[in-house]
Design a protein around this nucleic acid. Structure first.
Lengths: 157, 157
DNA sequence: TTTTTCGTACAGTTTATTCTGTATAAAGTT
DNA sequence: AACTTTATACAGAATAAACTGTACGAAAAA
C-alpha cells in the first residue's frame, strides 16, 4: 500500500457508510451496492455494478430490485442506452427513514391484527385461567401500540 | 387438535410476540425465550427454559446472557434455590426502546468517529478530486448526524 | 424472421449463523 | 477433602442466508 489516494478514500467511506446502511436491515451486499451508487452519483447498469463490486449480475439484479422496492434507488432512462439504468435516490435521510418507519409500522400493524384475532378467541374462555391469559395479552397488545406510536412520531421528526 | 385451550392460546400469543421482538434485532431463539419468560411472569432456571423451549441448556445460557446484557432480563435470588434464576423485566416498552435506541446510538457514534478520521486524512488532498470526495463525505457525515438526532428524539418520547 | 442482448427464475453451491454435546471451571454439599 | 451440581467455552454439526451459473423469455437489432 502506498499513500492514500482519493480512490482509496472513497472506498473507505463506502465501507463505513455501508455498515450504517446495514443497520437499517439491508443485506451486506445491498448496503454496499447502495453506498456505491450513492457515492458514484450517476446512473449505472447491472454490469457496471457487478464489475464494481465483483459480484454476479444475478446478485445485482435481485439487490437492485429490493432497493428499488424500498424506494432507495430509481430506474432512469437515457436515450440510446438499452440496458436498465439505476440511480441512488437523493434525500438520503428522508428516504431511509420513511423506508425504515414504514417497515416497522407494517410489521407492527400486522402483529396487532394477529393479536386481536387471538383476543376474540379468548373471549369465549370465561375461566380463571382465561382471565389471566387475557391480562397478559392486553399487556402485549399495549406494547405493540406503544411501539407503533413511537415509530409514527419518528416519521415527522 | 381439540378446541383452543388457554395453554394453546398463550402459545399463540408467544409466537406473535416473539416475531415483534425479533424486529428489535434479537435472534429467533432469544426472542422466543424472552416472550416465554415475560408471559410466564416468574423466575426460572436454565433447565426450565431449556425444557420449555426444547433447546439445549447451552443455548439457554448464551441467550440469557445476551438478554441480560441488553437489560431485558434480570437475575434474581430466591433462598433455598441453588440454580441461577432469571426473570423478564417489566416495563416492556421502556426497556426495549432504550435497548434499541442505545444500540443505534452506539453504532452511529462509532461510524461518525470513523468518518471523522477519514475526513482528517482527506484534508491533505488539496486536489479537484479531493474536494469532490470531501463533499460526498460531508453528505454522509450529515446523514449520520440526522440519524443520531432522530434516535435521540425517540428516547424521550 | 433470425439473431443477439438483456434481465430474472430457479437450482445448486458457498458462506455465515445458530445450535448442540463434550469438557472444564466454579461453586455448593457432604 | 472428595463429591455433586451448575454454568459456560469451545469445536463441530445442523440450519439458514447469501451468492452464482445456467437457462429461458422478452425485447431490440440485424
Amino acid at each position: 500500500m502506498l499513500e492514500s489516494t482519493s480512490e482509496n478514500i472513497t472506498n473507505k467511506i463506502l465501507i463505513e457508510f455501508a455498515k450504517t446502511i446495514e443497520m437499517f436491515g439491508l443485506t451486506p451486499l445491498e448496503s454496499r451496492l447502495f453506498a456505491y451508487m450513492y457515492l458514484a452519483e450517476k446512473p449505472m447498469t447491472l454490469d457496471d455494478m457487478g464489475e464494481a463490486l465483483g459480484k454476479s449480475k444475478t446478485s445485482m439484479s435481485t439487490s437492485i430490485r429490493n432497493l428499488s422496492d424500498s424506494n432507495l434507488v430509481t430506474r432512469v432512462w437515457k436515450k440510446g442506452v438499452r440496458k436498465d439504468l439505476y440511480e441512488a435516490n437523493s434525500y438520503l435521510f428522508k428516504n431511509f427513514m420513511s423506508f425504515y418507519v414504514n417497515r416497522w409500522l407494517d410489521a407492527v400493524n400486522h402483529q396487532k391484527d394477529s393479536l386481536e384475532v387471538i383476543r376474540e378467541k379468548l373471549e369465549h374462555h370465561d375461566t380463571e385461567e382465561g382471565h389471566e391469559t387475557n391480562e397478559k395479552l392486553l399487556k402485549v397488545i399495549n406494547f405493540h401500540k406503544q411501539v407503533e406510536s413511537s415509530f409514527r412520531n419518528m416519521r415527522q421528526s
